[in-house]
Design a protein around this nucleic acid. Structure first.
Lengths: 336, 336
DNA sequence: AAGCCGTATGAAAGCACTTTCAGTTTAGCA
DNA sequence: TGCTAAACTGAAAGTGCTTTCATACGGCTT
């Protein structure tokens, strides 16, 4: 009995269990495609030898790493989660792992962006609602890192966009049709753009534009810029509703913020939609539960699409660039 | 300037610099044994291609940034997301990557469980609300894979648990105090346990037990087993409310299901809480927005704790096993 | 019995490098 | 000028694993 002095390889395992190396590999990867009996024999051999597959060799032999990464801010906000859900569903079908890089600062983002293409422990990248500059884009494409952007446009990279301006327009039209004259807006439209993208700006612009075309004004006092937090949003809603002439309708730039407004209305005993109409944006799952009128942007779909584009690009290297524009739909429920 | 599409290999560098791959390799490893002139040419080519040897990159990536994996079913359900949020926050502080393995079938789970410990692309593992058997546990610990279980107990593995029975008890007590006599339960308590865990069973048991101790009965007709979907939940709620003697209070095993019940009540024009009290479980973010009375289990915290235990275990190998029990708290809001 | 599946397996061809080995220069020295 | 030791360099043979392709075998149909 001459125990192999070197660390065991699949060849050793194969010999010991009397099968070919292909079978060992199969046991390791797609164990469901192996006869249970054989599987057990192999497993025993693996245990007996204390065999551990070498990650290095594995990574080399495999086409890629089998995982794709998602760069995202606020990844636990409902809208991001729903996008992630779409991504995950497409990925798990294709048997890819999902690596999440939560971004919470500009530095953080830059750090990821500069190391990811080099580290190569990912086959593709989805960047959600984050702004990237030319240099980043260049680095990504030079290093052949398949990437798709969601909610941001860069000419050199695949992207999936939402026509936020049109979204604002839809809401304005809806509110006008309902006969509202005094409307307000709550959303995060602070000028200093941080690392994250502000589709909110566009939503606001489209909203305002359409309103004005219909002869309605949107005075400053009726526009509240509140960050994406409950506290600030509610505060803003309070202020709006305490105005001498309070608005009869509020457009919130996101569903979550709309929920906050609904809550305030309840506390103030304001009847929705009779005394106050509320419309959100996103059509998050919960929007349906609470019967919120909102603009659907099919979050799941955007994620799924992103993943599919990526997968396609990975398997078929030089696919033409794609810039997809997802349609929006106003969903009327009980808050207008 | 034609940027190579695929990621460059030494072959590309060799071609571009007009030498053989062996030379490239030599440049990379023992550069002193290469003619300075050749060396320069090769270096230029390397720069121009942005070439990084794959294996090396991998190794470097591995040592700097660790990664920990999370095995979870339904990872987009709000309660899981909030736990993930906790995990992510603890992880990003420590500069760890988050790899998510969405589990959607028993096979899937077994596949992960058998390959993860061997493949070792991960430094630690968090398993959420999933049942694992002795063999899995053994394999995990034999291979030294630091693991923590959430919502499941196995003597050999760290775990974080929630006293669901007590949760049910809390709800029962609350409802009794409010004077309810006819109460109902909606939740997924189907007997055939699938791959996912059913804390719901325990919630139900605790609920029923306390009810009975107080002399209240919980007849079969008032117990609806509905899976975690809106459709079924609402259907169940309908049935309950159409009973000749409808319940005055419903305990839903999860907040999301409670939302469904609230919606049905609204449609049926049933006043909450006057005609019907509703209490959920989890205290998901949204629960506060809609003023749902519920049982808080501090989801974020459970995730954070799990990550911290893991991290501690990774840096300090033989930490004693921990079995943590997280407290529950009844949050009274406007639905009771 | 002939044909046809579907599953379980093995042989062999990669993958991205490293290393050995032998061949070619080059330089040094008579 | 001829000869040899360095100094370089490339072809080719590994490295440990995955994956494609082909084959074998036990049913099932018709």
């Amino acid at each position: 009995m001459a125990p192999t002095k070197k660390t065991p390889t699949i060849y050793d395992v194969a010999k010991l269990s009397g099968v070919s190396i292909s079978t060992i590999s199969r046991v390791l990867n797609t164990s469901d495609k192996v006869n249970p009996e054989t599987l057990k024999r192999v497993m025993d051999a693996i245990d007996r030898l204390g065999f551990v597959p070498k990650a290095e060799a594995r990574a080399r032999a495999m086409q890629g790493t089998g995982r794709i990464g998602v760069l995202t801010p606020l990844f636990t906000a409902p809208s991001f989660v729903q996008r992630l859900r779409g991504v995950a569903s497409a990925l798990s079908k294709a048997n890819y792992e999902l690596v999440i890089y939560p971004v919470d600062s500009m530095d953080h983002l830059q750090g990821y962006l500069s190391s990811i293409p080099l580290m190569r422990n990912i086959d593709g990248l989805i960047i959600m609602s984050l702004a990237i500059n030319d240099q980043d884009a260049k680095r990504l494409s030079i290093n052949g890192m398949g990437t798709v952007l969601i909610e941001y446009l860069h000419p050199d990279i695949n992207s999936i966009q939402i026509d936020d301006t049109h979204g604002g327009d839809l809401v304005a039209k809806h509110l006008i049709k309902k006969g509202h004259k005094t409307v307000a807006f709550i959303g995060d439209i602070e000028p200093p753009e941080k690392f994250a993208i502000h589709p909110v700006r566009s939503r606001f612009n489209g909203f305002k534009q359409t309103l004005q075309e219909a002869g309605l004004s949107l005075p400053k006092a009726y526009v509240k810029s509140a960050p994406y937090t409950q506290k600030e949003t509610r505060q803003a809603a309070q202020e709006l509703l305490n105005l001498p002439k309070p608005p009869t309708a509020i457009f919130a730039a996101s569903d979550t913020q709309a929920f906050g407004i609904m809550k305030i209305a309840r506390q103030l005993n304001i009847k929705v939609p009779d005394d106050l109409a509320i419309v959100g944006f996103d059509d998050v799952d919960t929007a349906e539960y609470v019967d919120l009128t909102t603009v659907r942007q099919h979050l799941d779909e955007s994620g799924r699409l992103a993943a599919e584009i990526l997968l396609a690009r990975i398997s078929e290297a030089d696919r033409p660039l794609q810039h997809i524009n997802l349609p929006l739909l106003l969903i009327e429920r009980d808050t207008t």
